[in-house]
């Protein structure tokens, strides 16, 4: 089950610096661990995260095996216009998950 928790202020003043916090559900299996019988547990991680603000990419991050399960990312942007933030997580084994949040800018 893919679930995400997004925290974006629902309204902001034009020009305000706002914080965006995202938390998504993922095991982030490193690919370095072995089972009891010695076989390697294959890597299964999120490799990329993107945030678009009304279609324009404003934040992107590459993720690596050392990042803990259920990755939490927080970043800042300037509130320019009302609209929508779209979030996308892409990972191993064709993993893809999306979420969105809207904001009203006054």
């Amino acid at each position: 089950m893919a679930a995400a928790l997004i925290n974006v202020p629902s309204r902001a003043k034009r020009g305000d610096i706002i914080e965006i916090r995202t938390l998504t559900s993922h095991i982030m299996e490193t690919g370095f661990r072995h089972t009891m019988d010695g076989t390697l547990v294959p890597r299964d991680i999120i490799t990329s995260f993107t945030c678009r603000y009304n279609g324009t990419e404003i934040f992107r991050a590459d993720l690596f095996p050392a990042i803990a399960a259920n990755p939490y990312l927080s970043f800042f942007t300037i509130a320019k216009e009302s609209g929508k933030f779209e979030f996308e997580w892409i990972g191993d084994n064709g993993y893809a998950s999306t979420a969105s949040a809207s904001i009203t800018v006054e």
Binding site: N7, S25, Y72
Partner: peptide, 8 residues
């Protein structure tokens, strides 16, 4: 609650 992974 938006940073608590238990909420997932």
């Amino acid at each position: 609650d938006t940073s608590n992974p238990g909420m997932l």
